[in-house]
Computed example of a mutant assay.
Amino acid sequence: MMDVGAHPIGSLYAAERGRLSQFVRRLLRGGAGAEDLVQQVFLRLLVSGCPGHGRATLMAAARNLALNHLRDLRRRGETVLSDEAFAQIADAAPSPEAVTLYRSELRRLLEAVAALPPRRRDIFVLSRFEGLSHAEIAARLDIAPRTVVNQLVAALASLDRTLGPA
């Protein structure tokens, strides 16, 4: 790890960081990210291996990075939110209570499906869980398509009785 204070850029950073940060904050109109952009200026300077740049070069680099940053924000349509505004955004994830309720309902449904007679259960699972058509189920189980329809109707009626109205 390099000791930045011993490097010529370290002293340049110490001398110019505050002024560049203020300049970039003005360009960003107080927007977040000014410190990051100033660090990028010095990082690029360090990577280029040309520590002899003056204030004008640093200001131009900072200006260019700030303008690129603003252009990128406009292009992406990104909005910077304050901490208070961010905290008020509703979480799209279901609440723990809703997750528990959904799991309970799913468990009830699976138990009711498991209680169906074997052939009816197989037809229901192939239709509703695996998404097969009536013809595909009939071909797979070697039964008539009409039997598939009759068994599905019977399965749905049985599940409706077991689970009750929604």
Rank of each mutant, 00 (worst) to 15 (best):
R76K: 03
L132Y: 10
R108A: 09
L106F: 02
V125I: 15
L27I: 15
D83P: 10
A112G: 06
P118S: 11
R63S: 01
A144T: 02
S133W: 00
P51W: 14
A114M: 05
H134G: 14
A114G: 02
A138G: 06
A166M: 04
A90K: 15
D83M: 13
T162Y: 02
S82C: 10
R108Q: 07
A56T: 00
G49P: 01
E97S: 09
F23C: 03
E111G: 04
A139G: 01
S127Y: 03
P8Y: 11
V148R: 13
A112I: 05
L65C: 01
L45R: 11
L163I: 10
L28D: 08
L110W: 02
F124M: 07
E111V: 12
A154N: 14
R161N: 02
H7P: 00
R146E: 15
A14Y: 04
D3F: 03
V125Y: 03
L116P: 04
G77F: 07
A14G: 14
R108E: 08
G131D: 01
E35K: 08
R128V: 10
A144Q: 12
L132T: 00
D3S: 13
A135S: 13
A6E: 14
R121Y: 06
R19F: 08
R55G: 00
M2K: 06
R76V: 02
G52L: 05
G52W: 03
P94H: 09
E105I: 04
A66D: 01
L159E: 03
A93I: 00
G31V: 03
A90G: 05
H134K: 13
T162I: 12
L45T: 15
